[in-house]
Design a binder for these strands. Structure first.
Lengths: 169, 169
DNA sequence: CTTGGAAAGTCAACATAGCTGACATAAAAT
DNA sequence: ATTTTATGTCAGCTATGTTGACTTTCCAAG
C-alpha cells in the first residue's frame, strides 16, 4: 500500500507531496547527512586520513575481495582519485591488494588487521549515532526511512545496494 | 554489541538495531545523498557555480532577510569560506545584501529576481527526485524518513530545522 | 563619551578531494 | 597478432573547506 491511487482521497493524503514538505525533506537530508559524517570525520583527523579513505575502507570491509573497478563504481569517482587514497592505505598497511587468481589483471582488495581496526573505530561511531536515531524513531519509522532513501537512489546503484550483505528478515 | 539490552522482547522488535541493519542504513544514506545532490550539481555546471552556492541560495530563499551569521550557523562553515561564495553571488546579482535597519552592522540577505530564478531551477530538479521517492514510498514511509533524519541531527541544528517554515499539518 | 566587543569583510596560505588528459604495463579476449 | 580491459601513474586544474591576522563599522555597557 505504498503509493496507492492518488485522486481517490481529497488531497489530504498527498500533503506529503507539497512543495513545503519536499523542501523540508531536502533540508532534513542536508542537516542529517552533515551530522552523519561528523563523527567519523573527527576520528579521521587523528590519523592522517579523510572522508575518502573512510568510504574506501567501508566498502572494502563490506565486500572483502572486491576489485578496484567494483569499488570505483560504488564510490562514483575517477580511478585517479581513488588511486591516491588507495595507495596510501596500502602503503600504510591498512589494505592489501591481491592479484586475481582467475584474471591476473584484477586486484582484489582486503582489509588487514590494522585496517579492520580502524574500520571498527569509524563504524562504531557512525553506528552509534544511527542506532540512537533508530531507537528514537522506532522500527516503523526506520522501515520508511530505508524505503525513501532506496527510492531516491539511481537505479544502477540501487541494484548494488540491494545486493549487498543484509542479514535481516 | 549492536543492540543495547535485548532482554525484554525476544529481539525481533529490535531487529532494526542489528549491526547489519545499521550498516545498511549507513550505505543507504551515502548512496541516497549522492543521488540527491547529483541533479543540482549537473545544472550548476552550466553556470559557474558549485554546490556551496546552491546551499547558500537555498537557505536565503527559505529565510529571506537572514543575516550572514545565521547563514553561517546553518551552513556550518567558516565566514571566509562562505564569503567567497557570497561575494560572487552578490557580484553576479543573484543575492542582495541589505544593511540592517535596527543593527547597521548586520547584512540581511535576499535573492534578486535572477537569484530566485536559479533557485527555482535547482530546487525544481531536486524536488522532482524527492517527489518521485516520496510517491514511490508512500506517506507513512515519508513520515518515518523525516523522523529518523531529524533524530540524527545535532540538537542545535535540529532546533533551527524545526523552526523553519513548514506549512504542513 | 569612551571603550570593548560583535558583525562583517578581506588577504594569504594551505589541505583535501574531486576532475581531465595522457600515457604505461600486463593480461585477457578476439 | 591485435585489440581491449584492468590497473596504475604523472601533471595540472578546480572547488571548497581550513587557520590566522587584520580592518571597519557600529552597538552597548561602563
Amino acid at each position: 500500500m505504498a503509493a496507492g491511487s492518488p485522486g481517490t482521497q481529497g488531497g489530504e493524503s498527498l500533503l506529503f507531496l507539497t512543495d513545503e514538505q519536499l523542501r523540508k525533506g531536502i533540508e532534513a537530508m542536508f542537516f542529517a547527512y552533515r551530522a552523519f559524517t561528523a563523527d567519523p570525520d573527527r576520528i579521521l583527523e587523528n590519523y592522517e586520513y579523510g572522508r575518502a579513505h573512510h568510504r574506501a575502507i567501508h566498502f572494502i570491509n563490506r565486500q572483502p575481495g572486491l576489485t578496484v573497478n567494483t569499488l570505483l563504481t560504488m564510490l562514483g569517482v575517477t580511478k585517479q582519485s581513488l588511486n591516491r587514497v588507495l595507495r596510501t592505505l596500502v602503503e600504510d598497511g591498512l589494505v592489501e591488494s591481491r592479484v586475481g587468481r582467475r584474471d591476473k589483471r584484477e586486484r582484489h582488495l582486503h582489509l588487514t588487521e590494522k585496517g579492520a581496526t580502524l574500520e571498527r573505530e569509524l563504524s562504531d561511531a557512525q553506528r552509534a549515532r544511527m542506532r540512537a536515531a533508530y531507537r528514537a524513531a522506532g522500527p516503523a519509522a526506520v522501515a520508511g526511512f530505508r524505503q525513501v532513501l532506496e527510492a531516491m537512489m539511481d537505479p544502477d546503484i540501487r541494484r548494488h545496494y540491494q545486493s549487498m550483505k543484509d542479514h535481516s528478515v
